[in-house]
């Protein structure tokens, strides 16, 4: 494990910002990088965590929630981005806000070669579908980046992904 980031600390900071912005629905496919955030969302009585079987479901689920005035976020590992593009048609076609948090594999310091192809394609794929990418490399960027992503999604009604890089998260030794 490289990097010294405290997962409990950064997850709590992201959570508080999302909860303050009225995000109540945390849909996710589990990943090492988002498990603390999910645990916090499960424990907090303001929020609900919804375990998905495939990341694409979360795009449609968050859009459905938006229709009835509920704000959602979609959490996934970088590999899950590959499951989403067709569903992301909704964001442009239906003008839905979409907030994603992508925890990276296959970038800085990755030791598993299988993670590279999708990891390196995350931002081009998201951008091709009209999703703005806000990348976090250092801890002191996190709070402002999270606020920016929230504003983009819920004030401006855009599709946006907060990309938590492996430089920030630390690269796993597996």
């Amino acid at each position: 494990m490289t990097g010294t980031v405290n997962r409990e600390n950064f997850s709590r900071r992201i959570f508080e910002r999302l909860a303050d912005a009225g995000v109540t629905l945390f849909s996710y496919v589990p990943d090492f990088g988002n498990d603390e955030l999910v645990k916090i969302a499960e424990a907090d009585n303001r929020t609900t965590a919804v375990l998905l079987s495939s990341e694409q479901e979360g795009v449609a689920l968050c859009a459905g929630a938006d229709l009835v005035g509920a704000r959602g976020v979609l959490l996934m590992q970088s590999s899950g981005v590959g499951n989403c593009p067709n569903m992301l048609s909704l964001v442009r076609g239906g003008r839905f806000p979409m907030l994603m948090i992508v925890t990276m594999r296959g970038d800085y310091g990755e030791q598993n070669p299988w993670q590279y192809p999708m990891g390196q394609a995350v931002e081009p794929v998201l951008e091709a579908m009209g999703i703005q990418c806000i990348r976090v490399e250092r801890d002191d960027e996190l709070d402002q980046a999270t606020d920016s992503a929230i504003s983009s999604a819920f004030a401006a009604g855009q599709g946006v992904a907060l990309i938590l890089s492996q430089k920030f998260l630390g690269a796993k030794a597996f």
């Binding site: 629905l25 609900t48 919804v50 694409q56 479901e57 979360g58 795009v59 449609a60 689920l61 968050c62 859009a63 459905g64 929630a65 938006d66 229709l67 009835v68 005035g69 509920a70 959602g72 067709n86 569903m87 048609s89 909704l90 076609g93 239906g94």
Partner: peptide, 20 residues
């Protein structure tokens, strides 16, 4: 609500609506 644009999303929309 009409669900088109990507096949398969209707039930996931429905789940979001039902939870919301």
């Amino acid at each position: 609500f009409v669900s088109v644009g990507a096949m398969g999303q209707a039930s996931s929309h429905g789940l979001g609506l039902a939870i919301g």
